[in-house]
Amino acid sequence: MEQCVDSSRQWEQALHARLLAGDEAALAELYDQFAPMVYGMAVRITGDRSAAEDITQEVFVYAWERPGSYDFARGRLRTWLATIAHHRAVDCVRGAVARQRRAVAEVVHEQQLVPDVEEAAVAAAVAKCVRAAVDRLPDAQRTAILLAYFEGKTFRQVADILGIPEGTAKSRLRLGLRRLADQLEADGVIATKPG
């Protein structure tokens, strides 16, 4: 796994240099590699395929127009794209007409469903690894994280929904995410040092 991470980092750096240089094939490669991730995240968060298509387009057009905004010393290309995608998707959700509040139990159950849509084969083993790491989190931390990440809730809203103090919400998010990072490092999904 560790080897996998290193060589793909070299690929990402070369690809980034080509994006900077305006190499059109580089954008096509970036899309082919990461569009399923971006689209998948957008579908999951917005629940709307049409919105997900718009978001996917926004993310890759942004990556092409402003490749210099990616700093490879600060993290992976994948992380950069995922962060942009997540931000756009959450904005979309927050801007939507008020939706019914869903019971916590429903939210947790839904995240455990296997999506009944096509899945790309890319890094299937890694995806399985990540799902296992998320499942291994203590319930309280996982619930808070899924609410924040997939429902686009702020930590204050998470606290409100779960009926806990804000400090507890912040803490669950931080400790849960840190535990997830530790597990993913141990599994070799993320490198021990950024870069």
């Binding site: 995240m41 579908v43 992976r76 994948r78 995922a82 790309a120 995806a127 799902r131 998320v134």
Partner: peptide
């Protein structure tokens, strides 16, 4: 990022 990235579609 991996939370979202695990959901390739």
């Amino acid at each position: 990022a991996w939370l979202g990235a695990a959901e390739d579609v």
